[in-house]
Design a protein around this nucleic acid. Sequence first.
DNA 1: CATTAATATAAACAGTTGTTCAATTGCTCA
DNA 2: TGAGCAATTGAACAACTGTTTATATTAATG
Lengths: 121, 121
Amino acid sequence: MNRKEEKEHLCEVIQPHQETLKLVKQAMSSEKNLLSLAETFNVLADPTRLKIIQALSIKELCVCDLAYLIGVSISAISHQLRLLRHLRLVKFRKEGRMVYYSLADGHIENLLQQGLEHVEE
Amino acid sequence: MNRKEEKEHLCEVIQPHQETLKLVKQAMSSEKNLLSLAETFNVLADPTRLKIIQALSIKELCVCDLAYLIGVSISAISHQLRLLRHLRLVKFRKEGRMVYYSLADGHIENLLQQGLEHVEE
DNA sequence: CATTAATATAAACAGTTGTTCAATTGCTCA
DNA sequence: TGAGCAATTGAACAACTGTTTATATTAATG
């Protein structure tokens, strides 16, 4: 009747799995870590950002070089760079009216590298 | 005048960066690999899928257990499982009217593990 | 100082994504 | 066989994302 308390276990086979659930629950990472990890992977889930990160892992580059190299508009690159900047994954250096970007964080570079090894098999 | 050929290098400082661009271009992964890698990371970019994958990396589970464990509806879990199935990342085993899922691919488990190490620091 | 070049930013748009709701399948057991 | 349950599926919807277009900012250059 009261459909408010339906967040209980839904299937009827509670007994056999109760133990398993307890076990798995204990072994799992914290909600906080999992959310944060999902965010990190999300950064790498877009081809443009992936290319930016790989390019910058090779060499410091200006916005225009990145746009040319990757083949998208300067505006699009600039938007992605802003995102990466806010996540503190890239840093920049101004030289006259040009802005040179480079990676600020070794972690993301590692993840990219490890991902590539999986893909290249 | 002819604005069709604007896909050339847009900034004027072509000379100094031409060499750099050639260098970086050579060092970068193929378009195909990068797209495929972005797709892989994309699977891990959603908290629900991340939790499903981690849970299954610990133990085989039925849909209902996953729903209960992760705290989302059975339908939502089932939709995500279909996606993971199509990507051949999970496999399943039917037992009566219940379906037990487990990981089909060690790669994704490795990536998850390596990601966690980065986050947990 | 006016102009032009290199970025940055804002608003808008199309495409995608994850969830919910409702209906359905396939199985078990009485 | 038919009632009930686990899981699947399709449609619909809201939220989000990446790009474009247009405009602004800042610095060199003549």
